[in-house]
């Protein structure tokens, strides 16, 4: 699971062009939106694309994203359970 969390952090940094952030800067339970990493609604859409592209997970209900993208911890748990690739 730790390897998956690290992979997710690196993918978030690359996909969202977080130039000044390293994987070590993101704690597993840091909020990704709001006061945490400060991601916005376009970033959320980009994360949905990332789940589909890299892990074969299609989110049919956008409301699901609110819980899944709460932190790297919640993303990793969801990906581990639902990934198809």
């Amino acid at each position: 699971m730790d390897q998956l969390k690290l992979e997710i952090k690196e993918k978030i940094i690359a996909a969202l062009n977080l130039e000044d952030v390293t994987a070590a800067d993101i704690k597993d339970d840091d909020a990704l939106f709001g006061d945490g990493l400060g991601l916005d609604s376009i970033d959320a859409l980009e994360l949905i694309v990332m789940l589909d592209k890299d892990y074969g997970i299609k989110l049919s209900d956008p409301k699901e994203g609110r819980n899944i993208f709460r932190s790297v911890e919640t993303m990793a748990a969801y990906i581990a359970e639902h990934r198809t690739k």
Binding site: A15, L16, N17, I42, L45, E46, V49, D52
Partner: peptide, 11 residues
């Protein structure tokens, strides 16, 4: 086969 439109580019 790999159709992943990027929202961040689209805007």
């Amino acid at each position: 086969a790999a159709w992943y439109p990027s929202p961040a580019v689209f805007v």
